[in-house]
Design a protein around this nucleic acid. Structure first.
Lengths: 354, 354
DNA sequence: TTGAAAGCGTTACCAG
DNA sequence: CTGGTAACGCTTTCAA
């Protein structure tokens, strides 16, 4: 980097002081309109671009928020990012996005980096339940607001925005039961995350409520990605008999399950064979279409930023007893049980095709 | 933000000067091992995190690169980002990601923002061909290296990394022709981007080469998204007769076309009905599977960073005659014509089902 | 091996 | 309305 144009350069050229330039550029009330015009013109002509870092150093505020997500190729998160960026931009904030790649250590490093950038706030979707809270304590200590979204910890000193997974899962599974099924398997995703445990808890609660015994060989945990769904389903097939319906912890798992289902040539019912948590756009891509609990990523992201901004505006130093928001989107509120094209179709069983 | 721990604080606590702390923390050669240990311990204990902004101000280098993409929910770009982040992280750089939302003005603002952050380099995928080059000239003037990737301008003073779209398109269309078709339509995407024009040029070249007359009513331009493909196909149907094969400018357009094809109840050949540019992972999701030119997003992103780093390491001030790299991935190199499941299947015609 | 002084580009606080 | 001075947190240079 060569030396860039600074306010000093403009000041010199105009024969005024740098302070005047600074004030003029920030539309300070006590600079004459004429002066402002001149300064702006000179700045534009010289190709002056403010040094954000220097400014932040002085302002003690970066107008930047940091985001940590586990996986950018997960369309749920890329949609959520969209909501976050939109809302943040609208409030004059910039967003620095980092990706933990489902790795707790990388997540730690990312948060550290963002803290070193002195972001004004943090938005985090966890890769797994933290077993080491020091980096989060650090954020707390530095009084940098942090809001967990989607993948939130069971309990913490931070605000969270997430789906009420337990309740929603129970609802979805009860929907399946009320459709006449009692042989329901579960591809459970990662149990090292509350989101996974809660979805399983909802599943179990639904079974229990309807007196359906739990079958451990029908419950497979793993990751939240496609391959976990694929492998999970194949493992499920090793049970002595097969469930009729699969409840997948998310849409990508469902996608993997579909793939396996096709390969082993099971009839794919165009309806309730697999049900899952998911977001509607992704579910639309799948064949056959999924029955899902629709978790809207954009809305979730927006809500998270909203809460973050309120915490930024109202520093913890002011609120002795920090008021945490445990926001959960609930079924019937922002969440819907969405049925695919098959909505009217007769519900079919997962059965062998051969 | 309350006042954070600074090097000064650590210095005071240890009864040494701030310089000693700074040097110790950066592993400077002329600090005793013992002192370094003490400083590090004190820093860790106090929860010291370096102020990246202050450091950069002095260092005149941020160790950060800025990226501008048109759309984060486009899986091509989210995969490319992955490649970028991986390579950048490996070299100790951070990445600030911004999204232009396919909007030239937002793109301009994003670049401006990144310039104000004093990023060490820029990676840009265009939303459209720039009609105003001032922001790019600005980057040039500030001597901030900039590399265009994927969506590159026809010609500029900047390095580019992209697929050789013209050649690849011609190759793909010739593949279709050699399979016995001569009624080939084109959903062309945006013609305000070189990438769109070049793909069309390749299409036209292939037709011409084989003496197939061009049918303007079989060429529909629009955007690069799903809905453009959907609407484009419906418009195509209004031609007096239908083409047998559609060449879509990218995979998302193809996806939209499939949707329309299904809706109007045309037989969907599990093969060559639609061919497109795309990346293999996305194409795998589609039903029926696409025949594509496989553009690998991760590799493309990595290559772009690589070039950017070489320009960062070798500032323009040193090279009077800037050596631009116009890197193009070519078919047969990193690119393959990938056929879906139908590879062995008989090629079928797009015909009415009713 | 350590430290004092200067400066990076900006804004806040007072004087004039 | 304008400007001087100090300060933000850090590194670099040079002297001790």
């Amino acid at each position: 980097m060569a030396r860039h144009i600074t306010q000093k350069d403009i000041a010199k050229k105009l024969g005024v002081s740098r302070v005047t330039v600074s004030k003029a550029l920030s539309e300070d009330a006590d600079i004459s309109t004429e002066m402002k015009r001149k300064v702006r013109a000179a700045a534009a002509e010289a190709g002056y671009i403010i040094h954000h870092g220097a400014r932040s150093l002085q302002m003690r505020r970066t107008n930047t928020i940091g985001v940590v997500i586990p996986d950018i190729s997960n369309s749920f998160f890329s949609r959520a990012i969209r909501g976050i960026i939109d809302k943040a931009t609208a409030r004059g904030y910039h967003v620095i996005l980092t990706v933990s790649d489902e790795n707790a250590e990388t997540e730690r490093e990312n948060i550290h980096t963002l803290l070193s950038y002195r972001v004004d706030g943090l938005l985090v979707a966890l890769s797994k339940d933290p077993d080491d809270w020091t980096i989060f304590d650090q954020a707390r200590k530095m009084d940098v607001p942090l809001v967990f979204f989607d993948r939130v910890p069971d309990s913490s000193e931070f605000s969270t925005v997430a789906v009420d997974n337990r309740k929603a899962a129970q609802k979805l599974v009860e929907f399946v039961i009320s459709s006449g099924y009692d042989k329901i398997g579960h591809l459970a995703g990662s149990q090292t995350l509350a989101i996974g445990r809660n979805r399983m808890a909802g599943y179990l609660a639904a079974l229990k409520k309807h007196g359906i015994p739990r079958r451990n060989d029908w419950i497979i945990s793993g990751g939240f990605d496609r391959s976990s769904g694929y492998e999970g389903f194949l493992r499920l097939l090793q049970a002595r008999d097969r469930p009729d319906v699969i409840f997948a912890a998310n849409d990508r798992i469902a996608q993997g399950a579909y793939k396996a289902i096709k390969e082993v040539k099971l009839a794919i019912p165009d309806g309730i064979g697999v049900v899952a948590f998911g977001h509607s756009e992704f579910a639309e891509l799948l064949q056959p279409k999924l029955t899902i609990i629709d978790c809207p990523p954009v809305a979730l992201g927006q809500q998270a930023v909203e809460i973050l901004f309120s915490e930024i505006a109202n520093p913890a130093t002011k609120r002795r007893h920090r008021s945490l928001l445990k926001t959960t989107l609930e079924v019937g509120e922002s969440l819907l049980v969405r049925k695919g094209q098959f909505a009217e179709a007769e519900v079919m069983r997962l059965s062998s095709n051969e």
